[in-house]
Design a protein around this nucleic acid. Structure first.
Lengths: 344, 344
DNA sequence: ATTTATTGAGAAAGCGTTTTCTCAATCTGT
DNA sequence: ACAGATTGAGAAAACGCTTTCTCAATAAAT
């Protein structure tokens, strides 16, 4: 791009001309550099104001070698979890004057690495949500993405902090809640096998079983949608469990719906819990006991980690863990036959 | 930024050196310029590949005067509507190799104009969702934002296309559906007064009343949340209407919940409709009759409009309107006393 | 075989800033 | 008053590319 187009946009040189100073001085004034005579500074300021001069960020980016923008890579912008992470990151970053570029791989995981790389080149750093990416691929990719922070997974690549939701702890707490109520046979209606957060729940249940040997935990395969939950009813009933841990709120609602149609009372006959505390969880009949994951906070912390990487002195190597907190509503209660809560 | 930091990142000059050609040639090869000897091109390609050279988009942006990025300004990233618009824009733009920078004003409407301007300077164009901005302010802002496309509002500033959801048509169709079922007294439980889409619904109802003079339409003030819907039950019942048009699915669900508690049967005693067709609308009891707004399509079309502005030959001045389509489920039926549908 | 058209690649001028370098002018201390 | 320390502003180099300009080397035409 050479001498074409007289570039109507007004630039730093226009201001310099109007104020009768050099480009360098204008730049200094615009950046609040102190080493400039207040008188001249004022002259530049007013010239800039009169011309409504706005520095061109692109030129600035090149000169400074940074964009004040970070990329957020998500596998699916339609997924409420990632929407919320995105929102948390965006809000927190905005506080520090940073913007967010989105890279939605639309579930095409083969594109993920490329997309992340492109985003990284345009930005000062990347927040990566890539639950399905293999550990090996991540390990290879991570160094080229730094500064990078991971969401809901970790890697042992140096200088790659993470924020995590402790799904294992959440499911443990829910199981504990059912145990406290007196349930002795609990069923976990699992999510998709490929889901990383499902794996974390399984680890949590493992731990639960070890600390509660007298409680039977049966595992049922299932999915993550309302329909999956609906269709799990047969398995649930034949499992003989009185307390059901659904994979998430959606499947819990599906299950609730099916149980309701069959005339099975919740929580009198069967207790049901969800996970996530989506907005509608409180409006089901009965309102759903669930574990609320502080996803937005996680997003905000992802920015905090990124900020550490960008301007931090200390070498951050942290994994910040967020624990879901359970919210008890009407879908859980004392199992049939018992008539008093048994607090542990 | 002068001679500091030997800039470890490999650049175009490294490739040029390795391939034994000039920078210009490397650039030409990287951009698929035909006027380069295939032999040399191959040499450059392999040099680039060996060095894993990736062009720096920032330098490229400056040289080309464009970023292949568009900004999407939304008033609240937590609002499902804007999330969906964002997703639609992002997906469609990605098809053409464009990325999206998000600018969330977090409901601070005083910041909206500034944010939009900043986004514009970093991007090649802006998709603006600013339902609350005054027409005057928009008119003043619009020229400085172009190329710009508006979502769910219009302006008479030249070259400022829009995509719109026709909320008026949607509510008319829902009212028409109730009329067809035989309802003669219909209540509209309005949304927030400040809401632009509420205003559009009112206009639609106006039109409906004109074409259906024999049907009474009463207006009730209300809000946009589940709770608002729940609390509207008294007004609804005392209105004497048998068909209720709730502002949206959320308020409809609140109303449904309250009616259910009072033992009022839906749709036998009262028919209820929502608006939006949120994912849970199909899972209420009874499943909710509602109007589905094709928001994601609108987002996709917003990109289509933007593309026209960016590379289009014709001067686009279009307003693209998307009509909601009603989806009839179990929450509407023939009013008490009638026993057959009366098709119009 | 000589002139003209064509292809192809290098040199260099941007793109709009920031920042280093440089040097004149003003200030300090004695 | 004079050498040395400061302050302050302009000139120019960078940032990493793209693209025009220019010109040598071929191919085509007479």
């Amino acid at each position: 791009m050479a001498k074409r187009a007289p570039s109507n946009r007004i630039g730093i040189s226009d201001v310099a001309a109007k104020a009768g100073v050099s480009l360098a001085t204008v730049s200094r004034v615009m950046n609040g550099n102190q080493s400039v005579d207040p008188k001249i500074a004022a002259r530049v300021q007013s010239a800039a104001a009169e011309l409504k001069y706005q520095p061109n960020p692109i030129g600035r980016n090149l000169a400074r070698g940074k964009t004040e923008t970070i990329g957020v890579v998500v596998p699916d912008l339609g997924n409420p979890t990632f929407q919320t992470v995105l929102r948390g990151v965006s809000r927190a970053a905005a506080q520090d004057g940073y913007r967010v570029l989105i890279a939605d791989s639309s579930e095409v995981s083969s594109e993920e690495a490329i997309l992340a790389g492109e985003a990284r080149r345009r930005c000062d750093g990347v927040v990566l949500c890539a639950p399905r990416m293999s550990a090996a691929e991540l390990e290879e990719l991570a160094p080229s993405l730094q500064p990078m922070v991971l969401v809901n997974r970790t890697t042992n690549v140096p200088n790659s902090p993470s924020v995590m939701i402790d799904y294992g702890k959440g499911i443990q707490d829910l199981a504990g809640h059912l145990a406290d109520l007196g349930h002795t046979r609990i069923a976990y209606v699992a999510g998709p096998a490929s889901s990383a957060s499902n794996a974390l729940r399984l680890v949590g249940l493992e731990k639960f079983s070890r600390t509660h040997p007298h409680i039977e935990v049966v595992h049922l395969r299932n999915g993550s949608t309302f329909e999956d939950g609906y269709e799990s009813a047969n398995d649930v009933l034949s499992s003989g469990a009185t307390g059901i841990l659904a994979f998430n709120d959606l499947t819990a609602m599906g299950l609730l719906s099916s149980l309701n149609e069959r005339g099975i009372r919740v929580p009198e006959d069967i207790s049901v819990t969800g996970f996530d505390d989506i907005p509608f969880a409180r409006y089901t009949t009965p309102p759903l006991t669930t574990a609320a994951a502080p996803i937005m906070e996680a997003g905000e912390q992802a920015w905090a980690q990124m900020r550490e990487l960008l301007f931090g002195n200390a070498i951050t190597e942290a994994v910040r863990v967020f624990e879901p907190h359970i919210v008890v509503r009407g879908s859980t209660g004392v199992p049939h036959g018992k008539d008093s809560t048994a607090e542990s």
